[in-house]
């Protein structure tokens, strides 16, 4: 599923049978037919083409956010867990403070400052997302630093930075991978929410959230746009969650023989 989604996203422009921006008023709310396989939207653009390109937009945002969030969250989480003391206090407060705000509020603020669009979505979702990773990494660091092999590394004379990079991080990978792949589904969902509300990706760039919104008024009569976008969204989220479960099983050296 994931491979399929990623391939579709990467090759969206080749796969799309039509331009995702070209309007054709004769095709407005047209039924699915041989030319427009999933029909046309309000201004007569090909829904299938917009769906495919929308996958690319969604995944680009998701992977950008994920990269930022993983780097920032891991760095701050290990510092908090390893160093403890005031650094831990500061970082833990910062995550609590961030989580105290509803993320929509943060998104609205960011959109107001930066103007709505792809960069604003990435910044808004990263601002919220790093806290989850930082919390996990912090608790993993706290438990791993008490492991006997970490003490053995200290007895061997290994420097603390090397212990973090070579002993702690490899043992966090499974938990982070599971979290990250589940996180992708979550980020795509949130991006769709923001776009649905008009705070995210802007026309004419297609996005699933925006398509669901635009399809909503016509849901009774021409449901295929909202339904196609929703189905794509559900398919992607479920796909990444299953992918995360599979990866976790494959990455655990102790569970390898199951």
């Amino acid at each position: 599923m994931v491979v399929f989604i990623v391939l579709v996203a990467v090759f969206a422009h080749w796969l799309a049978p039509h331009s995702y921006t070209r309007t054709d008023l004769f095709m407005s709310w047209s039924l699915p037919d041989a030319r427009y396989l999933l029909g046309g939207d309000a201004v007569g653009r090909d829904i299938l083409s917009r769906l495919l390109v929308g996958a690319q937009v969604s995944l680009t945002i998701a992977f950008s956010v994920l990269t930022i969030v993983l780097i920032v969250g891991t760095v701050l989480g290990t510092i908090a867990g390893w160093h403890g003391g005031w650094a831990d206090g500061l970082i833990t407060r910062a995550t609590d403070l961030t989580l105290a705000f509803p993320e929509l509020i943060i998104a609205i603020i960011v959109a107001a400052i930066m103007g709505p669009g792809v960069p604003a979505v990435i910044v808004a979702l990263s601002l919220v997302g790093w806290t989850g990773i930082a919390r996990i990494v912090r608790s993993l660091t706290l438990s791993l630093r008490n492991e006997a092999f970490v003490e053995a590394a200290m007895a061997a004379g290994t420097r603390p930075a090397a212990i973090i990079v070579f002993h702690l991080l490899p043992n966090m990978v499974p938990a982070l991978v599971v979290r990250a792949t589940a996180g992708i589904g979550f980020i795509i969902m949130e991006e769709a929410t923001l776009s649905f509300l008009g705070l995210g990706v802007q026309e004419p760039q297609p996005t699933w959230g925006g398509m669901i919104r635009d399809g909503l008024p016509a849901l009774r009569t021409e449901p295929w746009m909202a339904m196609a976008a929703s189905a794509a969204l559900a398919f992607t989220i479920v796909g990444f969650n299953l992918f995360g479960d599979g990866l976790r099983d494959a990455l655990d050296p102790r569970g390898a023989r199951r």
Binding site: F149, A152, A155
Partner: peptide
């Protein structure tokens, strides 16, 4: 030092 539990004192990865 040689530790008590060899399962814990060797990094499994």
């Amino acid at each position: 030092i040689v530790f008590q539990d060899p399962n814990a004192s060797l990094n499994p990865r």
